[in-house]
């Protein structure tokens, strides 16, 4: 269960970005986790409820989007949907494919809150 470690890295990155931009809080975090990222969305979500306590992100909703797993064949050029344990080209059967999307583990965006009379944007 490495999701807690991933979550702590996420929260420390969020904190750095929020402080850097002078935000007073974080109201939303959007993350993309591909089926081949090695991180389970449900486990990250439950780790998050523990890891966010007492941080700048304590009230932030975590939204996890799961991009589709897609491969491109280097032999026939076809782009297709794939499964995590079957990354062959469904068109020509070649093993020589490249993952186009589905292995990402990315912080896509943040919703930062700014309170007080003067804000530096």
């Amino acid at each position: 269960m490495h999701e807690l470690a991933v979550c702590q890295a996420l929260i420390s990155q969020v904190r750095d970005i929020a402080l850097e931009r002078g935000a007073t809080g974080v109201s939303g975090i959007r993350v993309a986790l591909g089926p081949l990222s090695g991180v389970e969305p449900a486990l990250l979500q439950s780790a998050y409820t523990l890891a966010r306590a007492g941080t700048l992100a304590s009230d932030a909703a975590l939204t996890i989007v799961v991009p589709p797993l897609r491969v491109r064949c280097r032999q026939c050029g076809a782009e297709s949907q794939a499964r995590p344990n079957r990354l062959l080209c469904p068109a020509c059967g070649s093993h020589d494919t490249r993952v186009l999307s589905g292995d990402e583990m990315i912080l896509e965006s943040l919703s930062l809150t700014f309170s007080g009379a003067v804000s530096h944007v």
Binding site: V6, A9, I106, S109
Partner: peptide
């Protein structure tokens, strides 16, 4: 107020 900040950084 709230600002949406696009990032696309590795987790």
């Amino acid at each position: 107020r709230t600002d949406a900040v696009p990032l696309l950084r590795r987790l």
